[in-house]
Write a protein that binds this DNA or RNA. Structure first.
Lengths: 119, 119, 119, 119
DNA sequence: GTGGTCTAGACCACG
DNA sequence: GTGGTCTAGACCACG
């Protein structure tokens, strides 16, 4: 899986990596139990500091998406807990995005098509 | 229109205000041409720095949601430009949100219902 | 409130600080809404790096014990969420501690007295 | 006695085994003088490195919980020294756990019931 | 002035 | 070899 950093984005690097890994897991590109690159390898590949990658892995681990293991490095968790509900933050974000899309003249069906595409 | 600041949120205050005004315009709570409170009045009402509100108004103006003139203060624009497309940032955010919702076990229909609700 | 670091402890520095602040909140030494020292001030006082203190504050914030604010620094939260239950980790730790105390010949009443003292 | 490793835990494997054996001795599941499996057997059973089990046994021996001899392997000590007091580390841990439980709204009696259950 | 992020380097425990 | 922690420094957005 290829991680791309947008250096001009306001989103912190560790969060950009986190988001891409989460989307990779959701899309199936990263399967359950699949090995992630080591902290050092990913840092080298992206061209950033190991601490930044380490921060990402700790966040993903705390969120329950991956597990880390001193012997084997990091892996996608087999059983990711399913709360069945969206976080308050994500719901608010969705509301904001839908509002802005509506004001831009994006039809409702377009948004639903994107849901189908991204889900 | 009542603006509420979540002091526990990581979203900067000026952005929280901006988002609520945009959502107010989208929902129709703030109609075209409607007068917005002055920077001073809004800052006083919320209990924050005038600089912060000023930043919000500048952003909204630059985004084309409001117009300001020295005589009348700030007003919602009559004709907000409709590009017909979502910004790249919002599309990415939507993808992230949908991915996380999917991993949390939120069904696709639930998301579409939220689109209907928020649009 | 005075924070003391045991440099010989296996517990990471950021965790030692976190634990002492949590205990300070629980004991009432740090009241609701009370200001915490700035990251820089606490780092200087303890003689450690600012990033280490920053890590502590982010952890405490994520756990819901404090809130941070670019203007005012960090403060103890007014309403700390009460789940009403112990974490699995703490329950396991308690079981381990009780087992070891028992093997050391510490009577059960002694443990209960400590509960009274610490609660 | 069955040893279970929690691969999601931050507690090192050698420590998880150590803790479970100590709790087994305390509960009586492992009686005085009882034979422990060989390092090789236990490592094989759990599916981990022999070095890790070896580390556990060395620790348990050093702590006075077990004794090893070349002929008979490892056995639970007949007379485990009873200092009558808790270690400073355990006392601190207990204080931390009680503080967190209190902040979570766990009543004091709940904690005492756990003491009764675990002792 | 404040917390948040990041770098370039280092050392450590675990396995 | 791996992730986890820490330092000493820097720059940034927010308010």
């Amino acid at each position: 899986m290829i991680i791309r950093i947008d250096e001009y984005s306001d989103v912190p690097i560790y969060m950009q990596i986190r988001n891409q890994i989460v989307m990779g897991i959701s899309s199936g590109e990263l399967g359950p139990g699949e090995q992630l690159p080591t902290v050092r390898a990913l840092a080298l590949e992206i061209g950033i500091n190991t601490m930044t990658v380490s921060k990402t892995y700790q966040l993903l681990k705390q969120e329950g998406y991956i597990m880390t293991d001193r012997k084997n490095g990091a892996r996608v968790r087999e059983n990711i807990a399913q709360s069945g509900v969206m976080s308050v933050e994500n719901k608010n974000e969705l509301r904001r995005i839908v509002s802005e899309a509506r004001l831009s003249g994006v039809p409702k069906n377009e948004l639903k098509k994107l849901i189908d595409e991204f889900y």
